[in-house]
Nucleic acid binder design. Structure first.
Length: 214
DNA sequence: TTGCGGATGGACT
DNA sequence: GTCCATCCGCAAC
């Protein structure tokens, strides 16, 4: 698995391409003797100073400083008093773009994930940005860690599946909320906010039909 | 289906 | 000091 680790070049492509391309890749987290992994099935792109929803829109602060780091850095932040979220920093140093990993399909370490989350339903283990960090023991200690290292990294799976990728509006934000910067495997039962997803797909179908009539 | 409590840190006044 | 943030779970409706 380690042989297929994504290299630095991957993290230097455009943020939207990277966000889409990360669907189907495998997020790996090692902590001591524990190993966790899961197939990424939901991401969101945050485009730095061009994107009011991005933490880095207003410039560099102590909180977001790692977003300005080299592509291939992990940006882990704490929010709402109880959740961590994990991002892959994209682009050259100074370009504060990042991809938020919103959901994964659990593969390795499921037993520990259930223990960490305190629940048994596999569909609820990693189906949200705050859930997957809790399940995989990802916390503030990893903020600024290299995704080219051994504690946390992303690999190409040995068996590639055919993911049906669609893009939708992002979740849980108010600024610049209309752009389609969220990518999901629309056939996966492991995505976050399932009801939300149905609504968004229905809206898209409605829109494409009305456009077609014109 | 909606609404709110949780519990922390950074930006801003 | 206040506000609110890339959210989750659960209680009440």
């Amino acid at each position: 698995m380690t042989l297929n680790k994504l290299n630095e070049d991957f993290y230097l492509q455009s943020c939207l391409k990277a966000a889409k391309s990360l669907i189907g890749k495998v997020l790996v987290r090692k902590r001591g003797s524990k190993l966790y992994s899961g197939v990424i099935i939901e991401t969101e792109a945050y485009l730095g100073d061009k994107d009011p929803a991005s933490h880095s829109f207003k410039g560099r602060t102590r909180r977001n400083e790692h977003m300005f780091g080299r592509g291939g850095t992990a940006y882990v932040y704490f929010t709402y008093g109880n959740h961590y979220c994990v991002n892959a920093v994209i682009g050259k140093p100074g370009v504060a773009h990042a991809v938020l990993i919103r959901a994964v399909e659990p593969v390795t370490g499921i037993k520990s994930m259930k223990k960490n989350r305190g629940i048994d339903n596999i569909y609820e283990l990693c189906s949200g940005p705050g859930k997957l960090t809790q399940a995989m023991e990802i916390n503030g200690e990893l903020n600024g860690a290299s995704l080219l290292g051994n504690e946390i990294y992303i690999t190409i799976p040995e068996v590639l599946r055919n993911h049906k990728i669609i893009k939708t509006k992002r979740i849980g934000i108010t600024k610049n909320a209309d752009v389609l910067y969220r990518f999901i495997d629309s056939e996966s039962p492991f995505v976050s906010r399932v009801n939300y997803r149905r609504i968004l797909i229905a809206q898209q179908e409605k829109n494409s039909k009305s456009n077609y009539r014109k």
